[in-house]
Design a protein around this nucleic acid. Sequence first.
DNA 1: TTGTAGGCGTTATCAA
DNA 2: TTGATAACGCCTACAA
Lengths: 336, 336
Amino acid sequence: MVTIKDIARESGYSISTVSRVLNHRSDVSPDAKKKIEDTVRKFNFVPNNNAKHLKQNNSKAIGVLVKGTSNMLFASIVEEIQRMIEKTEYTLVVSYIDEDADEVEQAVLLCRERKPLGLLFLGGNPEHFEQGFEEVDVPCVLVTNRANKTQFESLSSVATDDIAGARCAVDALFEAGHKKIGILGGNLEKSHTSRQRFKGCKESFEAHTQEMNVDLCYEKSRFSFDSAYRGMGRLIEKYPEMTAVFAMSDVTAIGAIRALRDRGYRVPEDISVIGFDGIALAEYYNPKLTTIKQQYQILATRSVEILFGQIELKMDPVHELVPFELVNGESIRDIK
Amino acid sequence: MVTIKDIARESGYSISTVSRVLNHRSDVSPDAKKKIEDTVRKFNFVPNNNAKHLKQNNSKAIGVLVKGTSNMLFASIVEEIQRMIEKTEYTLVVSYIDEDADEVEQAVLLCRERKPLGLLFLGGNPEHFEQGFEEVDVPCVLVTNRANKTQFESLSSVATDDIAGARCAVDALFEAGHKKIGILGGNLEKSHTSRQRFKGCKESFEAHTQEMNVDLCYEKSRFSFDSAYRGMGRLIEKYPEMTAVFAMSDVTAIGAIRALRDRGYRVPEDISVIGFDGIALAEYYNPKLTTIKQQYQILATRSVEILFGQIELKMDPVHELVPFELVNGESIRDIK
DNA sequence: TTGTAGGCGTTATCAA
DNA sequence: TTGATAACGCCTACAA
């Protein structure tokens, strides 16, 4: 392994001068700079990160905690974050955890092990932050969930308004004349997102003076194709008069539609389905999914910007909402 | 930050003894062991990885280079690899690169920067390895592509037989009575996978004594929904008599089907489509995709096993084939 | 502008 | 069974 020492020896300068050149500092003569850069290239020298960070005691790493592996929206957001980070000197440490796991626990571990300068939570339960979050001593941004009610000095959030989004989705069903509406969502005890979207559903039901019988119309599933498939099976069995379903994610919607078709229902002719997220797949599916589109690029961009603001400019945490959009596909039938 | 020094002071032992306990060595008295472990717990001490690796000059990291971000098969494989690695003391460094990029270049960089103990290539061009690969001095496994013709001491491969798989796919189309078959695949100059699958197509054409007019029946696209959508548009325009298409991935197939439907063709009534990969989505799509299923779990498991065999047991490289499977969906129509 | 020397947190060698 | 102490590769006062 070639070290800074070798470069010093070969170039005829001292270790410190080499170090200065490596760190692009100004107090070096052009001569020294050139000579040293040449030998660096010649020997293909790359500084040892461990040694560097040992001294500086920081890792220039940004941690990303992704909740749920089948979440295609998160996949797009991660991709976008990656694209932004790779242009900087930071590196990304991505860690996937189960959609029902406690992200704060994982965050504490990640901080201890990798010493990141900041953390991005893709999905996450604001309530989890109430306990244990003190141990996380770096700036964090909760992405796709609001944390405006928490009072942490270092926790920002960038999210879509889940309540309004879900309400908009269910409104769309009511406006198409549907009254018997089922809901296929996550675990209301564990998933804050699901709880928020469920609130939106309730608001819509109330606004349309429609009773909601939760036991009948709500069915729980994870955010994956197969779990949604099974969930939809249970839902249609207990609520066969249903004419429309709000699925709390596009992946869920697709699992649901498959389940319906396998039981002989046509979508949207017999049953309408609306999704949530607006992933790329939505417009390639048959039928094209009508869905609430989260602007994943903006979510990603703003998250990273805010995190860097907190890390480098010591800015105060902010809580932003990113507007959503109702995308009209072919999965809703107007029965008025 | 609490260091090994603090633990030494607080426990009343020396740094060396603490280090011994930390590394589970036997030459420590039970007394010392207990006392030190207690103070470690009390102070929530975690060893500094940088210092550790600086000294040991290894990082216990496994690098994963993923070619193509929209590749859902790779996503599943990565997930599976993650699941395996997280049970070990190794950590994973995942890096996504463009599907047409040079993975060996990236590998060299990754090695220099992170000093991984081994590398997993998800997708990759055996030809790229011919130049520059000497610089990669750690064991590697090429996943989903065969490298049996290369002669590197440290390069294994675990793959599906792309030639046979593609041949099987096109055979299925011929056997359903199709004669005018289009192919939607990758860049034949840059993608080894595409080239292999294309070979399989040719074999099938020959076996069915069918002329292949490449200019007419082949169209190029990237492995993403939107690129496939546009590619299919071009293909159907230049070859409107086509009754069946072999899409070189399921994602491609879905983009293609959307393109066909948007132009008024029904699948499979008017045009049959067969995919490749067998991703989860395939059986949730409408129509269910007929496809060549790659066994991603086995691919992932064997890759990791082989890599560890090379790293820890200094085993020789091996080149394995994992069997594929024709999954019958609803996207092919029998026109005999 | 350059060089010397000390230290970052850990492991490993050697002597006690 | 323990404890000094010298590395590991780099950065950074401070001195020249």
